[in-house]
Computed example of a mutant assay.
Amino acid sequence: MPVRRRLSTFTGFGYDKGKPLPVCALWVLVEPILRSVVIPSSLRVRALRAFGAEIGTGVLLRHDVRIHWPWKLRIGNDCWIGVGAWLLNLEPISIGDDVCISQGVLLCTGSHQADNPAFEFDNAPIRVEDGAWIAARATVLRGVTVGCDSVVGATALVVKDVEPGARVVAPRAEVRFA
């Protein structure tokens, strides 16, 4: 039998933002400014480090990249994060070395308990290992590890671990003409 959600009973039980409210509020004010096309990647990286992100050398962080909580982010060396990527890291996101996160990618560590009337959180970290490529507009959901040197194709939806060296592609739509 389906569970009726009672959203008024949601408490957020067990979720920890990781920093005090004033730090979270300051990030919410700074983050939109950093997304501007006129802000250089090097300044974005420095600001993220100032807020607690661990970021290696040679990282290219394009404009319009959204990062929920920088203190829950680790990016290795020589990574590219493409325009419009969204790292929704309610829980930690760890990105290895030589990783390409392409345009419009969503890495989402958050979810909800579908069978819980209060719709409480069901969050889990995401790990992207060395040499992986997550192509344009792909989505990787909570609890997933994207293995070393793997490829997640454009628009793919990833809900379980990707083996090292594997390729995951979105299903192709069949086009029929009358």
Score class of each variant (00 low, 15 high):
V83N: 11
A138V: 06
C148K: 15
W71M: 13
C100G: 13
A85M: 10
F10Y: 15
R66Q: 07
L60N: 11
I101K: 05
Y15C: 01
N123D: 13
G96N: 06
R127I: 07
G147R: 09
A25H: 13
M1E: 14
W80Y: 14
L107Q: 00
C148R: 14
T145Q: 07
G153E: 01
I67C: 06
I67S: 01
L60M: 10
R176D: 03
H68S: 05
R6L: 12
A178F: 06
V159R: 14
L88Y: 04
L106R: 04
C24A: 13
D161H: 07
G82R: 00
I55F: 08
P117V: 01
A53T: 01
N123W: 04
V146K: 01
D122W: 15
Y15D: 11
V152M: 05
V38Q: 12
A25V: 08
L26N: 05
V99T: 11
A135D: 14
L107K: 00
P2S: 14
V65E: 08
V162Y: 05
R5K: 12
F51W: 10
L61Y: 02
P70V: 13
P22W: 15
H68D: 04
D130N: 15
R46P: 03
A25T: 09
G18T: 09
V83F: 12
E31I: 09
N89L: 10
R172W: 06
K160F: 02
A47H: 14
S111L: 03
W69H: 12
I95A: 02
V45P: 07
G58I: 01
A170Q: 15
W27V: 10
G52Q: 09
G165K: 08
T109L: 02
D78C: 14
R176E: 14
L73E: 12
V144S: 01
S94A: 10
I81N: 03
S111M: 02
G165H: 06
D149P: 02
